[in-house]
């Protein structure tokens, strides 16, 4: 059975997205006619050289920026006119994984994971803690629950961040070069576990990277160059 057969409905649907910074003579166009779709259970890798518009695209998909033109539909909702509580509710279904500085240094590993659900109004502290421990265990960090971030390696910190992303039961995960600060082995573990757990949770994942060694984990690869996006076939090793 092909992977696309088990994919769910579209989580991200971008139609003719165009984005620019500044106005008048200072105007810089960054993205042109971006059309893309990411479905539930899919991990899409976005590649491209520095300054190609990857980060801008990720921030637009994460509703941190509004596109200058075009239509972005997230989880079935048109984001164009969304503001206030409706936008906050939508954002609560999205989680981010950053290149570095993912953890709160004043909280232990488990407290960092729990921080991913503390915003939920009906949070149950005991249940959250149990889930956090379970997730850390699944990520091989069961014995590091009480460790401070500065006692963890870079790969372990990223895995704690993955646990925090997943505990919030997001529908969409946006990861910005999550392996760039890690060595090959750690990077591989992080991305494999991200894919494994995200697919189990039926999340859609959009991951930007320069790291060719992890391209094979993706369902699809989109390449951005000079603000234009096109799909590139993946060569599995």
């Amino acid at each position: 059975m092909a992977e696309t057969d088990i994919l769910g409905p579209a989580v991200v649907e971008a139609v003719d997205i165009h984005h620019h910074y500044g106005e008048g003579p200072q105007r810089v166009d960054v993205l042109f006619d971006i059309n893309m779709q990411v479905r539930e259970g899919e991990l899409v890798i976005v590649t491209g050289p520095s300054g190609s518009g990857k980060t801008t695209l990720l921030t637009i998909l994460g509703t941190m920026r509004k596109p200058s033109e075009g239509k972005l539909q997230l989880l079935g909702a048109d984001t164009t006119g969304l503001v206030g509580a409706e936008l906050d509710a939508l954002r609560n279904r999205i989680r981010f994984l950053f290149q570095k500085r993912n953890l709160l240094s004043s909280l232990t590993a488990i407290q960092n994971v729990i921080a991913g659900v503390s915003t939920t109004p009906l949070a149950d502290p005991d249940w959250d803690e149990a889930r956090a421990r379970h997730l850390l265990g699944m990520l091989g960090l069961g014995d590091k629950a009480e460790a401070w971030p500065d006692e963890l390696s870079g790969g372990q910190q990223q895995r704690v961040a993955i646990a925090r992303v997943l505990i919030g039961l997001p529908d969409l995960i946006i990861a910005d070069e999550p392996t760039s600060a890690l060595d090959r082995v750690s990077g591989r573990i992080v991305v494999d576990q991200l894919k494994d757990l995200a697919m189990r949770a039926k999340c859609a994942v959009v991951l930007s990277t320069h790291d060719e060694r992890i391209f094979d984990v993706a369902s699809r690869r989109l390449h951005i160059e000079d603000g234009r996006c096109f799909e590139v076939p993946i060569h599995y090793h």
Binding site: D88, N92, R95, L104, S105, S106, A115, S118, T119
Partner: peptide, 18 residues
């Protein structure tokens, strides 16, 4: 000192009340 960490919390949906 912790400005970037507050940005993380904002990305997690923590509001002004928090």
């Amino acid at each position: 000192f912790y400005l970037p960490e507050y940005a993380i919390l904002k990305s997690l949906g923590y509001d002004w009340w928090f």
